[in-house]
């Protein structure tokens, strides 16, 4: 029973979406998709409480037990409390550099800005951007490592990466001329070569991956809806 009711709910809610899609005139089900999406969003926001509680409790416990590095947990808890206190008072819809409070007041990026929007602009945004920008260093280090690979697959990967990269910078065209590739490929350049690679082998292979992903997704979906695969509920497959 413990597993059967959830399985039944999975089946019915999934089937409702399928019926809504294929038979749009079925009474009661008509327009269920939008309603379910709305319910799902609301439900998942409620569920966030589980995560937030987990975060707060585990950090509080570490502080209480004075575990190694507990001061960092204090920093986390402090920034959470401060942000939550101010953010919950103001509903901010980020739009460019201005924020709109739930009271309907427009606030500029300077002067009258609330403390909550300051946190967003001066803490959240720069940290998010900087962590993302780390990828620029890693994209170079990973490519450098790939240079050492000696099999044909790695060479193909690296060559197409280099061509496409050179095709997107002006330096590529000067290099093309300097290498004398114009004599072989006529009046073409790296950007032409890059376009060809992206349009022919790349799109061909990506189509194949997408086909496969679809097969996998469709069968996984059917297995989930019919309860054949319930391992995500801790059932270990059966």
């Amino acid at each position: 029973m413990q597993r059967q009711i959830p399985m039944f709910i999975v089946f019915v809610s999934g089937l409702t979406m399928i019926v809504d899609y294929f038979f749009p005139r079925v009474p009661y089900i008509q327009g269920a998709r939008e309603i379910f999406l709305n319910w799902g969003r609301i439900a998942l926001t409620f569920a966030m409480i589980l995560g937030i509680m987990n975060l707060l409790m585990s950090n509080l416990r570490k502080v209480a037990l004075r575990k190694a590095g507990w001061i960092y947990n204090v920093i986390l808890l402090g920034s959470f409390a401060l942000t939550f206190y101010f953010a919950v008072q103001y509903k901010m819809v980020p739009s460019g550099n201005t924020f709109i409070t739930h009271k309907g007041t427009d606030m500029g990026s300077s002067g009258t800005m609330s403390f909550a929007s300051k946190i967003f602009l001066d803490v959240y945004t720069p940290l998010s951007g900087t962590i993302f920008s780390l990828v620029a260093f890693f994209i170079a280090s990973a490519a450098f490592r790939a240079f050492r690979a000696k099999n044909i697959e790695a060479i193909l990967l690296l060559s197409s990466a280099i061509v496409v990269m050179l095709g997107s910078i002006p330096f590529g065209d000067s290099l093309f001329a300097w290498l004398g590739l114009e004599h072989i490929l006529g009046h073409r350049n790296f950007s032409w070569l890059s376009t060809q690679i992206q349009q022919i082998p790349m799109s061909a292979a990506q189509r194949a991956i997408n086909f496969g992903v679809a097969f996998g997704m469709v069968f996984m979906s059917i297995k989930i809806l019919t309860g054949i695969d319930r391992s995500y509920f801790g059932g270990g497959g059966e």
Partner: peptide, 15 residues
């Protein structure tokens, strides 16, 4: 081989 060329191209285009 096609897959590798595709991965390389995608890699290069995001740099």
């Amino acid at each position: 081989w096609f897959l590798m060329i595709s991965f390389g191209a995608a890699y290069g285009s995001t740099v």
